[in-house]
Structure formats: C-alpha cells, structure tokens
Design a protein around this nucleic acid. Sequence first.
DNA 1: GTCTATATCACGATAGAC
DNA 2: GTCTATCGTGATATAGAC
Lengths: 227, 227
Amino acid sequence: MSTRGLPAPVAPSSRDKILDVAEVLFARRGFAGVGMREVAEAAGLGKSSLFHHFRSKAQLYLAALERVLRRLDERLAPALASSLGPAEKLDRFTDALVDALAEQASAARLLLRALFEDDAFDAEAWPEGQSVERRIEAILAGITGLLHDGIEAGAFRRTSPAHVVQTLIGATVYHFASGEFGEGLLGGPLLSAQAVATRKAELKSFLHCGLAARPAQSERRETKWTS
Amino acid sequence: MSTRGLPAPVAPSSRDKILDVAEVLFARRGFAGVGMREVAEAAGLGKSSLFHHFRSKAQLYLAALERVLRRLDERLAPALASSLGPAEKLDRFTDALVDALAEQASAARLLLRALFEDDAFDAEAWPEGQSVERRIEAILAGITGLLHDGIEAGAFRRTSPAHVVQTLIGATVYHFASGEFGEGLLGGPLLSAQAVATRKAELKSFLHCGLAARPAQSERRETKWTS
DNA sequence: GTCTATATCACGATAGAC
DNA sequence: GTCTATCGTGATATAGAC
C-alpha cells in the first residue's frame, strides 16, 4: 500500500538531504551568503540535480524555513491545546519552545533570520512563502491568545501580550541562535542538557515574576498599555 | 589649527557618507547581500572611489560595525560610571541601551548580526575586526560586572549574570531589529516615542521583578510553575 | 580623490545526453 | 534523477589616466 504519513528513517530522499544541508548553511550565512553549488556539493549532488528538486534558490530557502516552522509548530501545539490554567500552559509552552530550539541550533538561527531580515526576494510569490507566513501567524496567534486569556482570567497582570511575545522570542530564539558568542558569554556550551535546563529555569523565573498578577496598589502609575 | 576632536557637522567626509549608507545596507541584507557597487552608488561615488577609502568589503563592513559599537559604548558608559546603587544603575543602563538602539534601527540590526552570525570572513585578520572584538567585550564586561556587583551586594537575587545579559540582549537588540515583523506584531511603529517608552517600562518591570532579591523561603518555590 | 576600463571568478539557471 | 556543458550576469578587486 501507500507509505504516506509514515516516516522513512532508513532511506532519506534526496529532497530531505538537500533540505538538511540547506537548513544548516542558510542558518549560518543567510540567503545571499550561500551558493547553490555549495548546497549541492554538501548534499552529494551536482548543481543541476539540485535544480531538479527545487526550481529556484528562493524556493529552497523557503522550503527549509517552512520545514523548521512545521516542526516547531508540532512541538508547540500540544502545550497550547492542553486544558490547563494559563500559568501552567505558559510553562509548558516555554518548555516546549526551549526544547525545540535547543534540539537543533540551525533551526533557531534560521527562525531568527526569518523574523528580522527583510528578505531580498518576494516570499509571497512562492507557495512555500505563503505557507511560511501562515505558520508564523498561527504560532503567534497561539501564544498571544494564551497571554490574552491569562490576562482576562486575572492570572497575569494587565500588560501588552505583543511586548511579552517579543521578549519571549528574544530570550529563546536569539539565545539559541547566538552560537559562538553565546557560548563565550556563558563560558560553556549552549546546547548541553544542563545549559538548556538552566535557561529554562531562568526564563520561567522571569516570566513567572514579570507576569504575576499584582495587587492594584503596586501597579504602574501610567497604566496605559496601547499595544 | 587642527580640527581634531571636533565634529564636522557641515561637511561630512566621503568616508562618513560611505559608512552611513554601508551601515543601513549591511544592516538590512547582511554582508553577502550587499554589493560594493550598490554602496558606491548610494553614496554618490564610483565603485573604484570606494575601494580608495576601504581596501576591501570586509574592512568596510567591520568599520561600519565598529562605528555602531563606538557610538553605543559612548551612550552606555555614563550609566555604568555613575555612583548609584546597582538597581538604579541597571535602570539607567537599560534606558540608555533602549534609547541608543531606538535612535537608529540599522544599528540594532547590524549589532544583532554581529552577535549571532559566524562571519564568512576572518574578522581577526583586520585591525577593525580586533577593534570590534574589544568593544564588544568592553560593553559586556560593563553590564556583567554591574550584575555581578549587584548580586554580591544583595541587591539582586543570586542568578547567572550571563543569562541575564542574554535575556537583556534579546529583549532590546532583537526587539529593535525586528522591523516589519515587530511592527506587525505590535500593531504599530517600533520607534515612536510612545512605543520606545512602553518598551522601556515593560523591560524594566521584568528586570526589576526578575532580579529582585527574594526571601530565601520563596526562592525555590517552583512547584507551582514547573511541570 | 574620482574616474573608465578591465581582469578574474562565482553566481543562478537552463539545455540536453544518458 | 543525475550528469556535463554552457549562457548571461554581476561579484570583488586592480590598473592607470586625470
């Protein structure tokens, strides 16, 4: 019958191998910094064979990014779908996010590029680009909605969900994308089990405290959060 | 006699003009994504004239980055040099950092690239690269030392200064580098006076609370928050 | 200091044999 | 599907006139 839906652990297709090396290379040096020749050679193919699987460099880049986002979404969705309270849900979300980013450093770097670079090509012109856009929006809607619900339920203090999301992205995506610089700063590896656990605890400690609902008395004097 | 040490506001040299456009272009599309021809034309020069001022593309990139770091250091140094307590010092440092990054968005982007990209060229081979390295280390030493002193003095809870620095970088440098994405998420401009003030308040609120020294009893009460 | 012209090379993408 | 060969373009960088 069909093998659809089943992973193929023994025989990775050429397409998957190309995506693997493209993900690593694009993460390291960005879209413009990687040549199709380099990707092809790293995947063990000729350059023309690569263009048989992906019609253009932009399509390859977007396909690699889309795969990263798909895997990330698969890791985050269970945390958001659980029927826990907002605080516990946010903890699970944070754990899942950190685990997913720490599992593969190239994913964090590629994701960071997607979030702050104005891509030179027109992403919307490719179907992969639209898929990328939709996946980003879905993930953002999930975490933003969680924060919003928590505020409405009184579990979090009244703050700006968007600003918290930006802080969360910076504290996770940037952290695991920081590579050599981050390791030099920490004085050790970024991706060891211990370093990941420390990061998780540190981050949750900040979130726990920074989002905790407070007595109205100690609330900010200028409580006009516009966004 | 000499004009050394005086700014020249009326007659910007060709070199300064080149650095201006290089900073913007490299920030937007990275080292590999910008051509020397594009820089030259944006600066109103011929391509060969550009190579008269900067011997290579790598030197131009590093010079632009070095200028960004120099200006940032000038803004941060007063906050660190003040004779305030650790908490107030950190507040001033945060204000200065946010103001400096918000003042010019290209600076934040170029700085973010410097922190997470493994540059394709050998930065150490150029004198500008060594200067970049020294300036980054100086800034890091300043904020890390401030956090360390605050912990020793009992003003901050006992945590990892390096992790706090990473969180701080993510919450500031990434935030102001996020450009179109960040504006879409916030639903408004990133760099307006109001948005900058909101970001400052949000960030200091997180820091204030996340770093506050706590009674030893509540220090490790993570049963409610950890799954 | 700025220019025109050029050297040399790598790029993305295509054609067509096998 | 993979290959060799090639097209057209634009890259960094240099040479030398003015």
